[in-house]
Amino acid sequence: MTKTEKILSNHGIRPTQMRSKIYKFLKRKQSAVTLREMQKIFVLKSEVDKTADKTTFYRAIKLFEEKRMVHQIDDGTAIAKYAVSDENVANTYGTDLHMHFHCTDCRKTICLPNKIPEESLPDEYEVNNVNLVLIGICKKCREK
């Protein structure tokens, strides 16, 4: 069993070939991706068999999201983007308390490394989702 298959199994996900490929792909990405971008890349690399359609990708992403292994980012472009969630010290995934940055030039959205301190959240509230997006121009685009 591969490392990716073990990760999926540990989170109660049956590690099919496509789920493993999708999760491994997302884990390698530096920026968040849309379902359409993911499909295009998989088709170009011939990593998808003829039976894999957009429903296959959608179901896999939604399953990963349900298990909190992936989070959806609403960066203001009206197209959902997805990135692998952070693991906490117990090697489990939870609510990602971090900001994102969306570049208006290259249109990439990335997860920023700094976390929002949990102690800054009121005790009487339970946070289920966080969506903080900073919008501007990334370092690579500014240097052009």
Rank of each mutant, 00 (worst) to 15 (best):
T34Y: 12
R68Y: 00
N129M: 10
D53L: 13
E143V: 12
C103G: 01
L35N: 04
K3M: 12
N129R: 15
R68D: 01
D49H: 14
Y23K: 09
E118C: 11
S31L: 09
R14W: 07
S20A: 08
F25P: 00
P113K: 11
K139S: 09
C141R: 08
E126F: 08
D74S: 11
V33L: 03
N129A: 08
K140Q: 10
A32H: 00
T104L: 05
E37H: 02
A52E: 11
H98A: 08
D53T: 14
I137R: 10
K62T: 02
I7L: 15
R107P: 00
I137V: 14
D53M: 13
E66T: 01
E124I: 06
F101M: 05
I13D: 15
K62W: 02
R36D: 13
I7P: 00
S120L: 11
I116E: 00
S20E: 08
V84E: 10
E65F: 02
M38K: 01
M69L: 06
N129W: 10
Y125W: 15
K21W: 10
C138N: 07
F64D: 00
M99K: 05
V130D: 11
C111M: 04
F64M: 05
T95S: 01
T34Q: 09
F25L: 09
Q30Y: 13
T77H: 06
K45R: 14
P117C: 07
A83E: 07
V33F: 04
G94W: 06
K140I: 08
I13G: 12
K144C: 08
P117F: 10
C103S: 01
M18A: 12
V48F: 14
K6S: 13
E66K: 03
R142G: 00
L97W: 06
F57K: 02
I79D: 12
T77R: 07
T104V: 07
T109I: 06
C141I: 06
M38Q: 02
M38V: 02
N91E: 13
D96F: 03
F25Y: 15
R68Q: 04
A32N: 00
P113F: 04
L97P: 00
K108G: 00
K50A: 08
T4K: 13
V130Y: 11
A90G: 10
Y58S: 10
Y82S: 05
M99E: 03
M1A: 13
K54E: 02
S46R: 08
T77L: 05
V33C: 02
D53E: 12
C103E: 01
V48D: 10
R59N: 10
